[in-house]
Write a protein that binds this DNA or RNA. Sequence first.
DNA 1: CCCGATTCTGTAAACGTTTCCGGGGAGTCT
DNA 2: AGACTCCCCGGAAACGTTTACAGAATCGGG
Lengths: 402, 402
Amino acid sequence: MGRKRLQEPADGRPTVHTVAARAGVSIASASRVLNGVGGSAETIRKVRAAAAEVGYVPNAIARSLQSQRTGLVALAVEDIGNPVYVAMMRAIESVVASSGRQLLVHATGGRIDNETALLRRLANRYVDGMIISPIRVTADHLAALVDSPVPVVVVGQLGADAPVDNVRTDSRHGVALAVDHLVAGGRRRIGFVNGPLDTVPGAARDAGFRAALARHDIPLDEDLVEVGDFQYAAGRAATERLLARTEPDALLCANDLIAVGALHALLAAGRRVPEDVALVGMDDTELARMMFPQLSSVSLGSAERGRRAAELLLQRIADPALPPRREQVPPGLVVRASSAGPSPTADRAPTAGEPLTAGEAGQPAPPAPRPSTDPLAGPITDPFAGPAGPAPTHPSSEGASS
Amino acid sequence: MGRKRLQEPADGRPTVHTVAARAGVSIASASRVLNGVGGSAETIRKVRAAAAEVGYVPNAIARSLQSQRTGLVALAVEDIGNPVYVAMMRAIESVVASSGRQLLVHATGGRIDNETALLRRLANRYVDGMIISPIRVTADHLAALVDSPVPVVVVGQLGADAPVDNVRTDSRHGVALAVDHLVAGGRRRIGFVNGPLDTVPGAARDAGFRAALARHDIPLDEDLVEVGDFQYAAGRAATERLLARTEPDALLCANDLIAVGALHALLAAGRRVPEDVALVGMDDTELARMMFPQLSSVSLGSAERGRRAAELLLQRIADPALPPRREQVPPGLVVRASSAGPSPTADRAPTAGEPLTAGEAGQPAPPAPRPSTDPLAGPITDPFAGPAGPAPTHPSSEGASS
DNA sequence: CCCGATTCTGTAAACGTTTCCGGGGAGTCT
DNA sequence: AGACTCCCCGGAAACGTTTACAGAATCGGG
């Protein structure tokens, strides 16, 4: 009956030993009652009372050590302030929270070494799984991914043979949708403001742009192509450079931040949007709906990809033996004011035979842009759907544009 | 010499025991070498070699259990997608990461029970500290805060006597800055689109608005005041309601999301901004710079508050005995195109005695709006460039009667 | 009334790490 | 040469929990 250890740690906070001693039972009985498994009526009463009296709260770390699970899920993205990642993060947080887990976020700054270090650190099991959206994928990434001791889901392109859960979209196809739309509006001198070509998204968009132009038999004027990074300032600067040397009648931007920068550059240079220059962004973030004129944008389903990645991860945590899975979220074009209507300066009519939306060769048809996440895809008039997340905000105050 | 426990757990992953056995030393020696404290040259060599051979990685949970620290810091905000929280989160993540810790984010959805549950859960020590920005502060909050076993820093207003680390701004003063600016521009019919009055920020802004008008001897026309929530759609709807019944020559919005909604409503209603209606938002998020025209906005130092909150938290984690501290980040007005210039429709000249900018009495000058974090700050006009003459405006922090 | 089945309880081990403590060896000073 | 200091090492305890195991107690049935 000798007390082998202190009931009250120096800390002063009660442990299961405190409760057990106070209730006059063993720690095993106390633990059982506190976990709701077993225990006689009398024991339950005593333990509950003792726990309440001392204000017992179980220690999450000790429990994790025993159960080998932390209840945490990590998300690693380049910049947690980028609207596209914000949307993704919000969707992920929602799924993760509803499974009773919590979300850990890492901002990698897009640095390769940061990303691989993060992956390697998974070995110390501080988290039950990770969702990572690497901006580049190196051999180091793959190596770290395959021998990661905890489940990892990659959002973004990945080598076809990598045995890793993966959620992706088809941004080449997304670019094609935008180009088709612009061509159908009579635009022929389509500029392109891209992000770095050595990133996965940058390369895919570049390839998609060239392929789409070729499909329309439009020769590519390299003067119409600019590269910066994926930020607002770079988008604005790149557009200024582009405008200084040539005259586009449309501009496709690799994401919405760039598009906003381009819009500012265009307006500052006296161009009208969309009359003089039609403008299309990518990612279809909230930003696109908030601009004036509202920006057309290629939806790459950020929130949807986040949601699916989280679900994939939770499933794999539940059953690590699952085979690697790959999900693809189709892109969709959301036309708004910034590219609406045909080009008034077009001296030739839009090519009649070109479809408005074009599937990739061999693909049957591009699916609709997921109305579930974007209930207001269609109309050009405002609609701004409130945040798709759990935001319990306004009841029904959608402003109908007059 | 009998091995008391398995060197290779069922898991297959090596532990300190694995390494120690392989190196032929005790686990104590192995641990010491791995932590870089002590060990003879020979021991170090053997342990390092063994660790490398088996690919040993320390288990973060076990380490946490021993050290009583998790290396995690939590952030709880209403909505991790709101730009103002994004800015705050980004700043916090940066500070937290540079201290070698990691950030856990919670989206509370603004639900009181969620917030208090989160605070109570701190008792199980899953995290070393928390930064929380409650949208309302109840008695439950305070109770949970004071007997939290881990450090908590509150961002936002808090009862004056609460013994809790606290970073706040003076949004009443911020509102006063905006009103002063609009009045100086000759605006007299200043509308106000606020968030819910039962939230801390909503109440503060409302009080500030009324006080500021009173200070300028402008009677308050209740038709000019609207309330929604802090989202875009509500801002737009509220502005439409306001425009349907009265004719403002300026509009102050309780945050930038509302201001963007208001801008759309104004433009849709055919008003020119700023010629017909000057528009000012609050929070000075990136959104303000991205609109066209760029929005004037009252900076409440979100990033700065986040940064300071993180630093306060880290200091308190390092030394829990510190007395409770309270820091205040002063607001500042950033004037951009949406409110630049005097009202062309003003039939009466601006009251000569009204200062363009109102500095704190006794304070040298309100701080600049953090150009360091803002490489592309509005090129428009600097609000604080005005004559720094005697500014006998509102006395202390609040815009009290002058 | 006795025996077997069932439930409850307590002891102890386990999760993987760090760290206190005592013992022993080597080096140095007097 | 003896004593003292310093360093290194290994055993064991500790962090707080869950749980396997075995013994005790209770209960029911024949």
